[in-house]
Design a protein around this nucleic acid. Structure first.
Lengths: 237, 237
DNA sequence: CCCACCAATTGGTACATACCAAAAAAGGGC
DNA sequence: GCCCTTTTTTGGTATGTACCAATTGGTGGG
């Protein structure tokens, strides 16, 4: 129905209907096959596929074809729960890989956010987190060594929220969170098994202790099709 | 720097650097001019422009060219403040246009969210909201007539949050909010002065009274480049 | 000076083609 | 049956061309 006045829109609607009505999963036919099916040029087909990708209905894995998207992960960036916890609660199989860990001085953005001077030492890590074997987010976490002494001595591939609770007694932390759409470039795109220029969602987070002192600055680069930000009202009866 | 191993990436970096370093505003040269400047085919150039668009650096207005994006609006969908209030607080000139108002029965999604049966009457409105003359969001608000009697008798082009406070004494409402990236299709794309298939952010909101009874269901379709979701921690000293 | 009309420009759509590198599939040896 | 090599397929990149409709800018008349 509706917007079939252009070829790409017609192809888009046809494929989308196929996927939704027949509950397709797994991979789509090859681009050249689909071109033949819908009798359009490859560039036109790719325009249609690109829009279905932006809808979060399909995605491409590296250079090995198009796949129907699995269901989205629901995620509340304001909530102080661990990745393991909220993924398993939704029936996903989570995993985390620590890609890099180093000490560095804060960039301008971090210095301003954490109110640190440029000489302060930070522990910075890069992690890739997956659900059901699909990489969904690259995390860059930056900890102030002054506020979290010897944090680099711990295994930072595990849950940070549990580490903060158990070792540093940070039970009631506060978050300043922003979410915006972004573009994923290499090398982050490669870590997410996607292409240079893919669509993403960027979550930044400043973590404060109960007195409002900021000690952590995070950047999360999500596959745009992997998550739905959710913030449920908390009722107080 | 970095990813200049492909032509589109080189063009993308070059244009992005130009815009950022020289603080360009307003319109870019025509596509055919840019093709000549960077010596690439038009489709390659458009790929680069498309990625800059996804970065939120440039946007296209209808079919009249490419423009540098104005700064983003910061928006907290959990906050119970009016559009007028938070836009002016950030130095924008807001305006709202009521496009449509009608009574209808709830669709499946709304019936489930508001826990209504299919016969309940809803007042549904469609509004376009702009900042500095640029349409940024299309709102579809749905009110339960049962919970908000005679709401269709009021001027619904004005602030709903003020109407709820003053007329219906809803001072402490609760929100269930979700945010996800989406694709904007006609006719919504046209209302936002953009193209069929443009990138967007979809915010859905269920509004409840202080007892948790849901009485309103909203869908907001934002230009993806117009906003940054922001949720600041509230400190309690 | 303003307005209506016209011509040139421009973005949106669409196609055909080509090449490359990576991935998948097929084949062959153990 | 398993592993390694070769062939084929496939997605990613890139170009050139073409046409249309909407917008824009200029021109001329009132």
């Amino acid at each position: 129905m509706s917007n079939a006045c252009f070829a790409y829109a017609h192809v888009r609607e046809a494929i989308s209907q196929q996927i939704i009505e027949q509950h397709l999963t797994g991979s789509l036919p090859s681009e050249r096959e689909l071109c033949a099916t819908y009798d359009v040029a490859r560039s036109t087909l790719r325009q249609a596929l690109g829009q279905l990708e932006h809808m979060g209905l399909i995605y491409r894995k590296n250079r090995s074809g198009w796949f129907v998207c699995p269901r989205k992960l629901k995620y509340d960036p304001m909530q102080h729960t661990s990745f393991l916890q909220y993924t398993t609660a939704q029936g996903f199989q989570p995993s985390t890989k620590l890609v890099e860990q180093k000490k560095l001085k804060p960039c301008k953005e971090i210095a301003a956010a954490l109110e640190l001077d440029a000489r302060t030492s930070l522990t910075s890590i890069l992690r890739v987190r997956s659900v059901d074997g699909r990489a969904v987010v690259v995390e860059n976490l930056n900890f102030s060594n002054k506020h979290l002494p010897d944090i680099d001595k711990h295994d930072l591939s595990l849950s940070i929220s549990i580490l903060l609770k158990n070792t540093y007694h940070q039970h009631n932390v506060l978050y300043d969170v922003t979410v915006e759409s972004c573009c994923l470039f290499n090398p982050i795109a490669q870590l997410l098994d996607t292409y240079d220029g893919a669509l993403g969602l960027k979550v930044t987070r400043i973590v404060r202790d109960k007195d409002g002192i900021a000690f952590e600055f995070d950047r999360e680069f999500w596959r745009h099709d992997a998550l739905m930000i959710e913030n449920k009202a908390k009722l107080h009866f």
